[in-house]
């Protein structure tokens, strides 16, 4: 049995709508519609995996996380983590769980973060020595030591997120959920957080599930991704494989010495002029790059040439488009 299992995991919400038309009815009547936040999703995650959850806004990422943490109960289907049903065996389940919600804090706003951590120790009822050891280790890795006596509300966004991550890991969880952990962070904080999470996963064997819109996070951290759209699980597999599948356009950009007349490009290509330069989009699957080079040579004396792949964000946008999300 896998560490984490979801079988036909489903959660519906009823949303009430105000009726727009009609005199008196407008004041009292409500229409209801069912929103399928998560629709029969099945997947398995092994202990120690680092899995990314991606999809456009409203795809069901947060719902999935909330079902697996036991915050929500499923409408249909089931999930188990380490053999436990999250919402039914909530206390035992969350004892081994760390959660970071990117948008909201689990620490106390007006007191130094060290005091917050103290109360967390009380809540998780952990031995004092182990807690101190862990705090020393994590705060060193995240460079939190000088901030421990500062109230949370005085910290910058990046510092706050590091404090949140620290707070979610002090009790040595076996499983860590991160909801948009790098949202709003500067480049340095982002890199630091990524390498810390990677190290944590390697050394402690912590299973990590993260949702993000930042594809650089995905590339850096996750070997495996789950793609959600309209509540359905659309893809489950390696991130590289996913990228290859949607990597359908490369762009060749060249400048020539002097005026040239361009021969017609191979079929399937799109030609553009950008000042002195010429840009050609071509599908690498149909047109080998070698053919493109031949075409360039036939055009005239080449001064400079660059070859671009699309960046990950463009690929993902294309994927969402193709899946009609």
């Amino acid at each position: 049995m896998a560490y984490m299992e979801a079988e036909d995991l489903t959660r519906f919400f009823l949303r009430k709508k105000r009726v727009k038309e009609g005199g008196f009815r407008r004041w009292v009547a409500r229409e209801r519609e069912t929103v399928k936040a998560l629709d029969h999703a099945s997947f398995q995650v092994e202990a120690g995996e680092l899995v990314g959850l991606i999809g456009p806004n409203g795809a069901g990422k947060s719902t999935t996380v909330k079902l697996l943490t036991g915050i929500l109960t499923p409408t249909e289907g089931a999930c188990r983590v380490a053999g436990r049903v999250p919402w039914a065996e909530r206390k035992q389940h969350v004892r081994e769980l760390g959660v970071v919600f990117g948008q909201r804090t689990q620490l106390w706003w007006d007191v130094p973060i060290a005091d917050s951590f103290d109360l967390l120790r009380e809540i998780y009822d952990r031995p004092r020595n182990d807690w101190a050891e862990r705090l020393r280790q994590i705060s060193a890795a995240l460079e939190l030591e000088p901030l421990l006596r500062t109230p949370l509300r005085q910290l910058s966004l990046g510092q706050r997120m590091r404090a949140e991550v620290c707070g979610s890991l002090l009790h040595r969880p076996r499983l860590l959920f991160l909801d948009e952990p790098t949202i709003g962070l500067d480049a340095v904080s982002k890199l630091a957080l990524r390498s810390f999470l990677k190290e944590e996963n390697r050394r402690e064997g912590t299973t990590i599930l993260l949702t993000t819109h930042d594809m650089e996070d995905m590339l850096a951290l996750c070997s495996r991704v789950l793609v959600l759209g309209h509540g359905k699980l659309l893809y489950d597999g390696a991130l590289q494989e996913l990228l290859r599948r949607y990597d359908t356009v490369h762009t060749l950009r060249c400048t020539f010495a002097g005026e040239v007349t361009l021969p017609p490009p191979p079929p399937g290509c799109v030609l553009r002029r950008d000042g002195d330069a010429v840009e050609v989009d071509y599908p690498p699957a149909q047109v080998p790059t070698g053919d493109m080079l031949d075409w360039v040579r036939r055009a005239g004396p080449l001064r400079e040439m660059t070859l671009k792949e699309q960046n990950v964000d463009q690929l993902i946008a294309r994927m969402y488009q193709e899946l009609a999300l």
């Binding site: 035992q92 919600f101 809540i123």
Partner: peptide
């Protein structure tokens, strides 16, 4: 309303 109740649900206490 603010969603802070989520935080309580992920802690191992009554």
């Amino acid at each position: 309303g603010s969603g802070e109740f989520d935080t309580l649900l992920v802690r191992p206490r009554n």
